[in-house]
Each structure stands twice: as C-alpha cells, then as structure tokens.
Design a binder for these strands. Structure first.
Lengths: 327, 327
DNA sequence: CACGTCAATGACAACGTTGTCCAGCTCGGG
DNA sequence: CCCGAGCTGGACAACGTTGTCATTGACGTG
C-alpha cells in the first residue's frame, strides 16, 4: 500500500480511502491511485485489515469426520451456501473420528479467529471449548451432541428412525431382525440401537442380543456379522443397517448370495432406488440439517443469545421394496 | 496477551517467549505465565502473528465446482490430507461452474493471503491470476487446464478414456454408439467428445453427429436425448456418458425401460458394481489426482521453480458387463 | 477583506504479535 | 573486590491496515 501511495504520489491514507470506497477523494486522485494499484497488482491484506478493525475474519470453521463421505460433503455444501449469504468463507477439517485431532483442529481454528464453529463431534469431552464459547465464540454441534457441555445442537431423530425401521419390517412379518451399527461410542449409533430395541418392544417382539453387531465395521466384520446372524438355526430374516457406509458394506457382502435378508438402511444414498431390489431407507434431509445448523450459528453471530437450542429434525422411511421380504 | 502479562506480573515479551517456547525464560516465570494464560483462556492471534512475522498464513485455497459432488469431495479430502502433512489448512469454495464466482473466490482467497491455490477452473480466462502468480503465489490447475495462461496442471487422460470406451463397445459389436456429454465449453467434456470421435475413427465406424448430445444436462434433456438417439429407424445400441452425474441421470431415465442400450460411463462411482447389470466405467484415481496436484503445489512452495508441469494421469476401463450388449 | 465552511488530504496511533537490542542481576574466577 | 559471562527480562519498532483528528486551500458571504 505504501508502494501504491508512492507511485500515485499520495499518502497512504488516501490509498486506503480509495480501496475502501470512502467518500471525499478527488475523482482525479482516485483514478491515479487505481492505476497505481493495477500497475503494482496490489491486493489489500485482509489479515491486517481485520486486525486493525478488530472485525470478524469472515470465516467459519467446520469440523467433521471426513469430507469425502457424501453425507458430510452435502452438509459442507449446505453450510457453505448459508455462509455465502452472510459473506463468510468456510475452513474445513476432517477429524477421522479422532477426538484429539478434533481438538487440535478446533483450537487451531480458534487461533485463526474464525467467527464461529460447526462441529460434528468425534469425542465426548468438549470442555476445551468452554473458554472460547465463554469468550463469545458461537459453536453449534451438528448431527451429534457435545459430550459434556450444553450448547446449540441440531440432530436428526435417530431413535425414531430405527423405531420406524423395525415397525416397517415387523409389518412385513419379520420376527427376527438384526442390527449392524457403528461403534456404540458414537452418539448416533447408540441412539439408533436404542430405537432398534424400542422398535422391538413396540412390535411386541422378543429382543435377541445375538442379532446385534456394533462396529466399527469393515468388510471382514460385516461378513462375520452376517454369518453369525443369518447362518444359524433361527436366522434373522431382516436387517437394519446403522448408516450409509454399513449399508454399502452389507450390499456388497450380500451381492452374490442367493438368499438375502430384507433390509432397511439408515441414511438415504444415491442409486438406492436403482438397485435390485431397491433399498428402503430411513432418510433425512441432509441439506436441511446443514442449513439449520448454519442458520443457528449466524443467528448467534447476529446477537441472538437465548438459551442453547436443541433442534431435532424428523426422519422418514422410504419404502422401496427391500424391506418387504427376504429374497 | 497484555492481560496475561499483567496477571503474571511480567512483560509482554516474556509472555510471547513462553507462548513460542523460546529459551531463556525462568521455569518459575514460565509456570506463572502458563497459569495466567490458562486462567484467562488466552489464545494467540495467528493473524497478528503472521502479519508480524511476514510468514505464511498456513492456508491453501481450493476452488471447485461443488463440494457436494463425490468426485470433488474426494479431491478435497486428498488435498486436505497432503496439506495436513505440511501443516496447512484448507479453505474451500464452490464456484458452481460460474467463472465470475470463481474469480471472486480466487481474489478473496488471495486477499486472505493463502499460501497457494488449487483450482478446478470453471472459466476460460485466468488472466486475473497473473499478477498473483507473478507475485509468487503458486497455483495448480486440477482436472481442467487454465484457459489462457501457462501454469501447473494435473489432468486425467480424458481423450484416451472415451477412445477406450468406444473400442470396448465396438469390440462387442456395437456399430452405433451415442455420446451424452457435459457442456462443450467444459474442457473435460470437449476432450471426451474428441476421444469419442477418435474412437469411432480407430474402430473404422461411421461417425453420426446425431448420436451426440452435449449438455448441460438435466432429467428432461436426458430423456430428450434418449428419445432422439434410441427411438429411430437406426437407433444407437450403445451409449457413452460423459461424467458421473450424466451416468446417474441416464440410469434413472432407463430404469423402467425394457430395452436398454449398452453403457459405459466416464468416472467410476460407488455401487456401480452392484447395479443390474453392473455398470462398466472409465475409472481414474481421484485421490491420486488430488494428491498429485497438492504435491505439486507444495513442491512449488518449497521452492521448486522449474517450468510449469503438465501431468496427465492414466484412466482405465473397468468392464463390468453393461458395455457388452443391449438388454 | 476577514471569516466561516467545506472538500481534499495527510500525520499519527493503534490492532496483537514478534525480532532486535539493551539493561540488570547473579555468579565464578582472578 | 572487580570484571566479564551468562541468564532473565523489558523497551521499542515493525508487520499492513484503518480510525481520528488536524491541516491545507478554495470559495462564498457579510
């Protein structure tokens, strides 16, 4: 900016005025300054600007498990869209379900003075965020609640989802239904398991612990789980899968089997309707989830300081056929 | 930091020393300072730090079409992974294929003093980046080349991809093959079309312009295109789709049809192997693409100033069945 | 002509850090 | 007892901006 001023033969402050479109600069002077800016390829340093003005950095941080997972990338996009309306940019970080990594990223983002933080928490302890929140940083938890602090949270109705899944399968005469879920330390996984039991209870079925296989899952554990639950004297005739990844693992494992259990998966996914049979799922509006969380964040930034909200978005079962009978 | 100094009863500079782990601070003093930091919830302002030190901001910018598209989210993740190795964070921006938006985002990222820029270009003119590149900003173009400037670029072998697709279909006795591609202004789309023609030539087939339908595509244009190419006296018996989205649109449009053309899609996608028939695709290693581009960027940051590279990654056909005959 | 008004511009401090340099203290050796 | 070395700690400037206030000169008015 100094160089620009020198080249245009004006003071630093005048350049600043031109750059900021402030009134009270002679048009001729402004033209000279703009020419100098162009010639030097000057671009004002937003870091310095924000420092001086004490204003926001214009960024928000998003912490999630893995941007490559379609579920999270849709969330990210929804957040980006809202952020754009408020002239903010998005810093993303993938925690890979590692609480320590999540903490590092969160504190790093704080040191960068993000205006707010959206977190899909991996860990259960978020005390480290308390000073930041206290210092005025808005934080919204997304898809999962914070472990040990009260804060804004936007969830989907996990429990109701698996309740509906079991009800649907029971309606189609399934009596022995298995559940393959993610690691029970993950909130959504344990909620979905809870809903699964609840569904059994409401359908008046006898719950059998042996039909539950919690993760983390990979190809091998899924094959194991299928063997344990399907190849026995009283096999499960139906299966509920606890998230999109597990659903895909199961589909792949079942691909070449003659007999397949009926199936309802948690999370909708692209092409579910084009498989044979089309896969019934518990769907929720991922975009709405991201948008709701971002809206809440920006409401906080705009000064809303009501007590922490906890929003639960509905889920709904999309019956496509795979839940109706074993094939 | 001032407050911390006051509380600990030391000078500003001593706090700075403690925060930076510099030598020459009495352990007792350090402890007092750390306690004060803890008590006040102090977190150093990285913006100010970078300003003062004139050092990097520790961020790189990634510009792409849409983070929600699995192809781009895999790229993003690969980039994030490399960035992490170099202690950098990632700012993403979706341009939605709008060159103006891309330009805005790029310049905004420059003003934020990102250390480097990875761009999947939407527009054809990138002159606006010249001053920045000249000023030392490393920029790597990814998946598509820059329109009008020479710069580092990492591509996949689009041409070879559709050449292979046509060869594969011709090998299975298809003589009339249609191509549904994206808007021809998009580099990858026009390259793939070029490869498609080249494939016809190499297979000794007679090219028919009427079997080509370039986008942008949506549900309606795909239905139109299918009608035009398939419901005629001399219908196409096979189809090459120009990217993952178009492939999915086609699959959905064909879902309830009795007769389906043979199909080869550009871009692999999850579950392609589980459809009926399994979909043959031209696959490329998306993660490798993102990694290669990021590696190149960080090489530049590390001081490599050899002439611009242009890397082309290979593609390969995965024959799964859908390319073999019409059903 | 003196004065107030207004438009245009500039000098200076400050944002929160860190690098440079210097001052004070302690301690051991001569 | 003096001196220098080594260890602590602080004062000050600077990074690139912008907010505040002062200065300059031109102009219109009584």
């Amino acid at each position: 900016m100094n160089d620009v001023a020198r080249l245009a033969g004006v003071s630093l402050k005048t350049v600043s005025r031109v750059v900021n479109g402030e009134a009270g600069v002679h048009p001729g002077t402004a033209t000279r300054v703009l020419a100098a800016i162009d010639q030097l390829g000057f671009r004002r340093n937003l870091g310095a600007r924000n420092l001086r003005r004490g204003s926001s950095t214009g960024t928000i941080g998003v912490l999630l498990e893995d941007v490559a997972n379609p579920f999270y990338s849709m969330l990210t996009r929804a957040v980006e869209e809202v952020a754009r309306q408020y002239d903010r940019h998005v810093l993303t970080g993938s925690s890979d379900e590692d609480p320590e990594r999540e903490r590092e990223l969160a504190l790093e983002f704080c040191a960068r003075r993000v205006d707010g933080l959206l977190v899909v928490p991996a860990g259960l302890r978020h005390g480290y965020l308390v000073p930041e929140i206290h210092a005025g940083l808005p934080v919204v938890f997304l898809d999962r609640p914070a472990g040990d602090i009260v804060a804004d949270t936007v969830l989907v109705d996990n429990l109701d989802g698996t309740v509906q899944a079991v009800a649907h399968l029971a309606r189609h005469d399934h009596r022995r239904i298995a559940f393959f879920g993610d690691a029970p330390t993950i909130f959504t996984a344990s909620e979905r398991l809870r809903g699964f039991r609840e569904g059994y209870a409401r359908a008046g079925l006898k719950f059998d612990e042996d039909l539950v296989a919690m993760g983390p899952h990979d190809e091998r554990t899924i094959l194991d789980a299928l063997r344990r639950t399907m190849e026995r004297a009283d096999p499960a005739t139906a299966l509920v899968t606890g998230n999109n990844r597990i659903t895909v693992l199961v589909l792949r494992a079942l691909a070449n089997r003659a007999r397949r259990p009926a199936l309802v998966g948690f999370d909708d996914f692209e092409l579910a309707d084009l498989l044979n049979p089309p896969i019934s799922v518990i769907a929720h509006d991922t975009t709405a989830l991201g948008r709701a969380a971002a809206d809440l964040l920006f409401a906080r930034l705009a000064g809303d300081n009501s007590p922490p909200h906890r929003v639960t978005l509905p889920v709904h079962l999309i019956a496509r056929g795979s839940g109706e009978k074993s094939q």
